[in-house]
Amino acid sequence: MRNASHGTVRNVNLHGGLGVHVRGVSHIFDGLQVIQQADLQVEPGGFLAIVGDSGGGKTTLLRLIGGLLAPTRGEIVFTASGEMNAGESARGTSSQSTQAVAQTSSISFCFQEGRLLPWRNVLDNVALPLELNGVLAHERRAAAREMLAKMQLSDSENKMPAQLSGGMRMRVAMARALVTRPKLLLLDEPFGALDEVTRLALDEELRQLWLDTGTTAILVTHSIQEAVSLAQQVVVMRGKPGRTMQSIAIDLPKDAAHRTNMQFVSLCERVYQQMTLQSKEVARVAQ
Protein backbone atom coordinates (compact mmCIF):
# COMPACT_ATOMS: atom_id res chain seq x y z
CA MET A 1 0.00 0.00 0.00
CA ARG A 2 2.72 2.39 1.01
CA ASN A 3 4.84 1.22 -1.85
CA ALA A 4 2.13 2.16 -4.29
CA SER A 5 1.45 5.59 -2.84
CA HIS A 6 5.11 6.57 -2.58
CA GLY A 7 6.28 5.21 -5.82
CA THR A 8 9.26 3.51 -4.18
CA VAL A 9 9.86 -0.18 -4.00
CA ARG A 10 10.74 -1.20 -0.53
CA ASN A 11 11.61 -4.62 0.70
CA VAL A 12 9.81 -4.70 4.01
CA ASN A 13 10.49 -8.39 4.48
CA LEU A 14 14.26 -8.06 4.86
CA HIS A 15 14.19 -8.09 8.59
CA GLY A 16 10.94 -6.38 9.28
CA GLY A 17 10.23 -3.26 11.26
CA LEU A 18 8.82 -2.87 14.72
CA GLY A 19 5.57 -0.95 15.06
CA VAL A 20 5.45 1.51 17.94
CA HIS A 21 2.37 2.76 19.71
CA VAL A 22 2.85 5.38 22.39
CA ARG A 23 -0.33 5.87 24.40
CA GLY A 24 -0.86 8.64 26.90
CA VAL A 25 2.73 8.66 28.04
CA SER A 26 3.76 11.17 30.68
CA HIS A 27 7.16 11.49 32.20
CA ILE A 28 8.30 13.20 35.38
CA PHE A 29 11.97 13.73 36.26
CA ASP A 30 12.27 14.16 40.03
CA GLY A 31 9.13 16.26 40.27
CA LEU A 32 9.60 18.04 36.92
CA GLN A 33 7.01 17.03 34.39
CA VAL A 34 8.68 16.88 31.00
CA ILE A 35 6.11 15.05 28.88
CA GLN A 36 2.37 15.15 29.24
CA GLN A 37 0.06 12.65 27.59
CA ALA A 38 2.14 12.00 24.52
CA ASP A 39 0.56 9.86 21.83
CA LEU A 40 2.01 8.62 18.60
CA GLN A 41 1.87 5.63 16.39
CA VAL A 42 4.19 4.26 13.73
CA GLU A 43 3.35 1.17 11.79
CA PRO A 44 6.06 -1.46 11.25
CA GLY A 45 8.55 -0.16 8.72
CA GLY A 46 7.23 3.37 8.93
CA PHE A 47 9.13 6.64 9.22
CA LEU A 48 8.00 9.20 11.75
CA ALA A 49 9.63 12.53 12.48
CA ILE A 50 9.27 14.54 15.69
CA VAL A 51 9.90 18.29 15.61
CA GLY A 52 9.35 20.86 18.31
CA ASP A 53 10.56 23.30 20.92
CA SER A 54 13.95 22.90 22.46
CA GLY A 55 13.56 21.32 25.85
CA GLY A 56 10.13 20.04 24.90
CA GLY A 57 10.94 16.46 25.81
CA LYS A 58 11.75 15.00 22.38
CA THR A 59 14.94 13.31 23.51
CA THR A 60 13.16 12.08 26.61
CA LEU A 61 10.38 10.59 24.48
CA LEU A 62 12.94 8.84 22.30
CA ARG A 63 14.69 7.43 25.36
CA LEU A 64 11.35 6.23 26.69
CA ILE A 65 10.66 4.45 23.42
CA GLY A 66 14.13 2.94 23.45
CA GLY A 67 13.67 1.60 26.95
CA LEU A 68 16.37 3.77 28.54
CA LEU A 69 13.69 5.28 30.78
CA ALA A 70 10.44 3.91 32.14
CA PRO A 71 7.40 6.14 31.59
CA THR A 72 5.78 7.58 34.69
CA ARG A 73 2.35 7.04 33.14
CA GLY A 74 0.99 5.57 29.96
CA GLU A 75 2.24 2.72 27.86
CA ILE A 76 4.43 2.01 24.89
CA VAL A 77 3.44 -0.98 22.79
CA PHE A 78 5.58 -2.62 20.15
CA THR A 79 4.14 -4.63 17.32
CA ALA A 80 6.12 -6.80 14.96
CA SER A 81 5.06 -6.66 11.33
CA GLY A 82 2.28 -9.14 10.61
CA GLU A 83 1.15 -9.53 14.21
CA MET A 84 -0.67 -6.36 15.03
CA ASN A 85 -1.41 -5.79 18.73
CA ALA A 86 0.38 -8.96 19.72
CA GLY A 87 3.64 -7.24 20.46
CA GLU A 88 5.41 -6.51 23.66
CA SER A 89 4.26 -3.65 25.79
CA ALA A 90 5.59 -1.45 28.51
CA ARG A 91 3.45 0.17 31.12
CA GLY A 92 4.33 2.95 33.48
CA THR A 93 4.58 0.55 36.33
CA SER A 94 6.76 -2.08 34.75
CA SER A 95 9.60 -1.16 32.48
CA GLN A 96 10.73 -4.76 32.22
CA SER A 97 9.38 -5.46 28.77
CA THR A 98 10.73 -2.27 27.20
CA GLN A 99 14.11 -3.25 28.46
CA ALA A 100 13.63 -6.72 27.06
CA VAL A 101 13.02 -5.31 23.61
CA ALA A 102 16.12 -3.19 23.77
CA GLN A 103 18.00 -6.23 24.97
CA THR A 104 17.31 -8.15 21.82
CA SER A 105 19.19 -5.24 20.23
CA SER A 106 16.34 -4.81 17.82
CA ILE A 107 16.38 -1.13 18.73
CA SER A 108 19.26 1.12 17.74
CA PHE A 109 20.07 4.69 18.63
CA CYS A 110 21.89 7.32 16.64
CA PHE A 111 22.87 10.48 18.48
CA GLN A 112 23.82 13.95 17.34
CA GLU A 113 27.34 13.74 18.74
CA GLY A 114 27.95 10.40 17.09
CA ARG A 115 29.33 8.95 20.30
CA LEU A 116 32.24 7.11 18.76
CA LEU A 117 34.95 5.67 20.99
CA PRO A 118 37.96 7.88 20.26
CA TRP A 119 40.47 5.09 20.92
CA ARG A 120 38.99 2.75 18.34
CA ASN A 121 39.28 2.97 14.61
CA VAL A 122 36.23 3.23 12.38
CA LEU A 123 35.93 -0.50 11.79
CA ASP A 124 36.04 -1.43 15.46
CA ASN A 125 33.63 1.35 16.31
CA VAL A 126 31.10 0.02 13.85
CA ALA A 127 31.64 -3.52 15.11
CA LEU A 128 31.15 -2.49 18.76
CA PRO A 129 27.46 -3.42 19.13
CA LEU A 130 28.16 -6.88 17.75
CA GLU A 131 31.24 -7.23 19.92
CA LEU A 132 29.20 -6.42 23.02
CA ASN A 133 26.69 -9.03 21.90
CA GLY A 134 29.40 -11.67 21.82
CA VAL A 135 29.74 -11.97 18.04
CA LEU A 136 33.11 -13.45 17.02
CA ALA A 137 35.82 -11.10 15.78
CA HIS A 138 35.90 -12.16 12.15
CA GLU A 139 32.12 -12.26 11.86
CA ARG A 140 31.57 -8.85 13.39
CA ARG A 141 34.34 -7.33 11.29
CA ALA A 142 32.80 -8.79 8.16
CA ALA A 143 29.42 -7.35 9.10
CA ALA A 144 30.99 -3.98 9.91
CA ARG A 145 32.86 -3.94 6.60
CA GLU A 146 29.64 -4.64 4.76
CA MET A 147 27.95 -1.71 6.51
CA LEU A 148 30.92 0.55 5.83
CA ALA A 149 30.83 -0.37 2.17
CA LYS A 150 27.16 0.58 2.05
CA MET A 151 28.05 3.99 3.44
CA GLN A 152 31.05 4.46 1.14
CA LEU A 153 33.38 4.41 4.11
CA SER A 154 35.49 1.41 3.16
CA ASP A 155 38.57 3.56 2.60
CA SER A 156 38.34 4.95 6.10
CA GLU A 157 38.03 1.77 8.11
CA ASN A 158 41.42 2.23 9.75
CA LYS A 159 41.01 5.92 10.53
CA MET A 160 40.54 7.14 14.07
CA PRO A 161 37.45 9.24 14.87
CA ALA A 162 39.61 12.34 15.42
CA GLN A 163 40.72 12.11 11.79
CA LEU A 164 37.17 12.22 10.42
CA SER A 165 35.04 15.15 9.35
CA GLY A 166 31.74 15.73 11.13
CA GLY A 167 29.78 14.22 8.26
CA MET A 168 31.95 11.12 8.14
CA ARG A 169 31.65 10.70 11.88
CA MET A 170 27.87 10.71 11.58
CA ARG A 171 27.99 8.17 8.80
CA VAL A 172 30.14 5.93 10.98
CA ALA A 173 27.61 6.37 13.78
CA MET A 174 24.83 5.43 11.39
CA ALA A 175 26.74 2.40 10.20
CA ARG A 176 27.15 1.35 13.82
CA ALA A 177 23.44 1.85 14.52
CA LEU A 178 22.52 -0.28 11.51
CA VAL A 179 25.08 -3.05 11.92
CA THR A 180 22.81 -4.92 14.33
CA ARG A 181 20.04 -4.90 11.68
CA PRO A 182 17.64 -3.10 14.03
CA LYS A 183 13.90 -3.31 13.71
CA LEU A 184 13.56 0.18 15.12
CA LEU A 185 16.02 3.00 14.51
CA LEU A 186 15.83 5.98 16.87
CA LEU A 187 17.63 9.08 15.60
CA ASP A 188 18.10 12.09 17.86
CA GLU A 189 19.00 15.13 15.75
CA PRO A 190 21.62 13.06 13.97
CA PHE A 191 22.64 15.73 11.48
CA GLY A 192 22.04 18.80 13.62
CA ALA A 193 25.70 19.78 13.76
CA LEU A 194 26.39 19.45 10.04
CA ASP A 195 26.47 21.98 7.22
CA GLU A 196 23.53 22.13 4.83
CA VAL A 197 25.16 20.32 1.91
CA THR A 198 26.46 17.42 4.00
CA ARG A 199 23.14 17.27 5.73
CA LEU A 200 21.20 16.94 2.48
CA ALA A 201 23.53 14.17 1.35
CA LEU A 202 23.13 12.31 4.62
CA ASP A 203 19.34 12.77 4.56
CA GLU A 204 19.39 11.04 1.20
CA GLU A 205 21.59 8.25 2.51
CA LEU A 206 19.37 7.78 5.54
CA ARG A 207 16.30 7.53 3.33
CA GLN A 208 18.02 4.98 1.13
CA LEU A 209 19.06 2.91 4.15
CA TRP A 210 15.56 3.04 5.52
CA LEU A 211 14.26 1.81 2.16
CA ASP A 212 16.89 -0.93 1.94
CA THR A 213 16.60 -2.30 5.44
CA GLY A 214 12.90 -2.14 6.11
CA THR A 215 13.48 -0.83 9.62
CA THR A 216 11.06 1.47 11.37
CA ALA A 217 12.58 4.90 11.91
CA ILE A 218 11.79 7.66 14.39
CA LEU A 219 13.71 10.86 13.76
CA VAL A 220 13.92 13.83 16.09
CA THR A 221 15.00 16.91 14.18
CA HIS A 222 14.91 20.69 14.36
CA SER A 223 14.56 21.01 10.63
CA ILE A 224 11.01 21.09 9.30
CA GLN A 225 12.27 20.45 5.77
CA GLU A 226 14.21 17.43 6.89
CA ALA A 227 11.19 16.07 8.72
CA VAL A 228 8.83 16.60 5.81
CA SER A 229 11.18 15.29 3.17
CA LEU A 230 12.08 12.08 5.01
CA ALA A 231 9.10 11.05 7.07
CA GLN A 232 5.70 9.61 6.31
CA GLN A 233 4.25 11.45 9.25
CA VAL A 234 5.42 14.39 11.32
CA VAL A 235 4.48 14.91 14.94
CA VAL A 236 5.01 18.30 16.52
CA MET A 237 5.82 18.44 20.22
CA ARG A 238 5.00 21.68 21.96
CA GLY A 239 5.09 23.34 25.31
CA LYS A 240 6.41 22.58 28.73
CA PRO A 241 5.61 19.88 29.64
CA GLY A 242 5.78 18.64 26.06
CA ARG A 243 2.61 17.44 24.39
CA THR A 244 2.25 15.81 21.04
CA MET A 245 -0.01 17.47 18.47
CA GLN A 246 -2.13 15.79 15.82
CA SER A 247 0.28 14.01 13.51
CA ILE A 248 0.57 15.34 9.97
CA ALA A 249 0.61 12.73 7.24
CA ILE A 250 3.17 13.37 4.53
CA ASP A 251 2.06 11.97 1.21
CA LEU A 252 4.77 13.07 -1.13
CA PRO A 253 6.52 11.28 -3.94
CA LYS A 254 9.89 10.54 -2.35
CA ASP A 255 12.25 11.59 -5.06
CA ALA A 256 15.27 13.79 -4.72
CA ALA A 257 13.75 16.85 -6.41
CA HIS A 258 10.73 17.12 -4.18
CA ARG A 259 12.01 19.84 -1.90
CA THR A 260 11.00 22.50 -4.41
CA ASN A 261 7.62 20.91 -4.96
CA MET A 262 4.58 23.10 -4.05
CA GLN A 263 3.05 20.25 -2.08
CA PHE A 264 6.24 19.98 -0.07
CA VAL A 265 6.19 23.65 0.70
CA SER A 266 2.59 23.60 1.84
CA LEU A 267 3.26 20.63 4.11
CA CYS A 268 6.19 22.46 5.68
CA GLU A 269 3.82 25.37 6.12
CA ARG A 270 1.41 23.18 8.07
CA VAL A 271 4.14 21.88 10.36
CA TYR A 272 5.36 25.43 10.84
CA GLN A 273 1.89 26.59 11.84
CA GLN A 274 1.68 23.92 14.52
CA MET A 275 5.09 24.87 15.77
CA THR A 276 4.19 28.53 16.14
CA LEU A 277 0.75 28.18 17.71
CA GLN A 278 0.22 30.25 20.83
CA SER A 279 0.48 28.22 24.01
CA LYS A 280 -3.27 28.62 24.70
CA GLU A 281 -4.06 26.99 21.41
CA VAL A 282 -1.49 24.25 22.00
CA ALA A 283 -3.49 23.01 24.94
CA ARG A 284 -6.60 22.96 22.73
CA VAL A 285 -5.08 21.32 19.66
CA ALA A 286 -3.01 18.76 21.54
CA GLN A 287 -4.80 15.47 21.49
Binding site: A102, S105, F111, R115, L117, W119, E131
Partner: peptide
Protein backbone atom coordinates in the same frame (compact mmCIF):
# COMPACT_ATOMS: atom_id res chain seq x y z
CA UNK B 1 28.14 9.72 30.45
CA UNK B 2 26.98 9.66 26.83
CA UNK B 3 29.35 6.78 26.15
CA UNK B 4 28.19 5.06 29.31
CA UNK B 5 24.66 5.31 27.99
CA UNK B 6 25.83 3.82 24.72
CA UNK B 7 27.19 0.79 26.56
CA UNK B 8 23.96 0.56 28.47
CA UNK B 9 22.02 0.48 25.23
CA UNK B 10 24.12 -2.48 24.15
CA UNK B 11 23.59 -4.18 27.52
CA UNK B 12 27.25 -4.36 28.37
CA UNK B 13 27.88 -5.78 31.83
CA UNK B 14 30.02 -4.06 34.45
CA UNK B 15 33.18 -5.85 33.58
CA UNK B 16 32.84 -5.19 29.86
CA UNK B 17 32.03 -1.57 30.54
CA UNK B 18 35.11 -1.28 32.72
CA UNK B 19 37.40 -3.08 30.31
CA UNK B 20 36.19 -1.64 27.02
CA UNK B 21 35.01 1.81 28.06
CA UNK B 22 36.14 3.13 31.42
CA UNK B 23 39.70 1.86 31.34
CA UNK B 24 40.55 3.12 27.85
CA UNK B 25 38.91 6.45 28.51
CA UNK B 26 40.88 6.73 31.78
CA UNK B 27 44.20 6.00 30.07
Amino acid sequence: PALRELFRIYNANRFTRWWKLELPSAT
